[in-house]
């Protein structure tokens, strides 16, 4: 049995860096031809490469355009691997999708390909599919389960909405991905029937006789309906504007999409943190974002100023002040 070697990973990364689809596909095709299992092409080539791409974007080494290009090329490779597997005739039929608000469609496609390689019949919905669309697709598709991937915690309210519509028609939901926190600590809040740390475990759970055929509606959240989450979400635009003007004296007048997008993510993360009733999410985000900004030579004082601007506008939201203070402490 042959395996992926590190030279090939470096070569693959080089192809991704040049958005060289032809060479990247050739490399994958050669590996498959040499007898490397499709699963290893995904787990030992594509996934590690994407991890490096993510790091390079975070450190500012690669632009967002380059990162997108690399993801696109990787997507073609995933497609190639999935295409080499015949459609499974399994009884286990599932729908795989991204949480609403999570745009990492590649993660769900890789997951779907890995499940398919394990004999599970998968249908992948494109990123951007919302709860409304899922509610129409699931009852018609004949899927026995929904597998929901979420790579960013800000999409957890979207994930919750999707779990609700699936479970309302009795379809159980398995969730996974870094968005659900360490050891899936937020999978419960979202109302999932189960959480899997990786594709292998997910496949095991879905084919386990104990995995439900029909499930009950998602249990209600004790702290919902909670106006705090919506309240912060609705203030997104003015909050980002306030944050941008607060950091302008420190950062200067530059239209930085990273900064603007980052502040928008900060507001979303704050809202989700309140939704989850867990400061850790916002504090971790702040640490990560300060690091990203550091690589772009933006002082953390700028972010602290933006947070102070948020706090003055969120005095009416219970918990927001405390969460912002906790996060400000790490800056």
């Amino acid at each position: 049995m042959t395996h992926v070697v590190s030279d090939e990973l470096d070569l693959f990364l080089a192809h991704l860096g040049r958005a060289d689809e032809v060479e990247a596909l050739n490399l994958a095709r050669n590996l498959l031809g040499r007898g490397v299992p499709g699963e290893e092409v995904l787990t030992d080539l594509v996934i590690p490469a994407l991890r490096v791409v993510g790091e390079r974007w975070a450190t500012g080494e690669w632009t967002v355009a380059r990162e997108h290009a690399a993801s696109h090329v990787s997507g073609r490779v995933v497609h190639l691997v999935a295409d080499t597997t015949p459609r499974p005739r399994s009884q286990t039929r599932i729908v795989v999708c991204c949480a609403q608000g999570d745009w990492h469609g590649l993660a769900s496609r890789i997951l779907a390909a890995l499940l398919r390689l394990r004999g599970i019949d998968t249908t992948v919905l494109p990123p951007g599919t919302g709860a409304g669309e899922l509610a129409r697709v699931v009852p018609d598709s004949g899927a026995g389960s929904v597998v929901l991937s979420c790579t960013v915690s800000t999409a957890l309210p979207g994930a919750r909405a999707m779990v609700e519509v699936a479970r309302r028609v009795g379809v159980p939901v398995l969730v996974g991905g870094p968005g659900f926190g360490p050891n899936g600590r937020w999978a419960g809040v979202v109302g999932a029937n189960g959480w899997a740390p990786d594709a292998e475990r997910a496949a095991e759970m879905l084919t386990d006789p104990d995995w439900p055929t029909v499930t009950t509606p998602a249990p209600r959240l004790r702290h919902l309906p909670d106006p705090t989450h919506d309240g912060v979400g609705l203030l997104r635009t003015p909050l980002v504007a306030a944050g941008m003007s607060a950091l302008a004296p420190i950062e200067g007048e530059r239209s930085d999409t990273t900064m603007r997008d980052g502040l928008a993510s900060a507001v979303d993360t704050l809202a989700v943190s309140l939704f989850l009733d867990d400061d850790a999410l916002f504090v971790d985000f702040t640490r990560w974002f300060a690091d990203v900004l550091g690589h772009r030579r933006v002082p953390s004082e700028a972010l602290a100023a933006a947070y102070r601007a948020f706090a003055t506008r969120l005095t009416h939201v219970p918990g927001a002040g405390a969460t912002l203070t906790a996060a400000g402490a790490v800056l």
């Binding site: 355009a65 290009a69 993801s71 696109h72 951007g128």
Partner: peptide, 20 residues
């Protein structure tokens, strides 16, 4: 902001920005 992307990635990103 999509300059330099492969054209498939470009339309994907534009759709994403729109839905965002």
């Amino acid at each position: 902001s999509c300059a330099g992307m492969p054209v498939e990635a470009l339309v994907e990103r534009l759709e994403q920005r729109l839905l965002e």
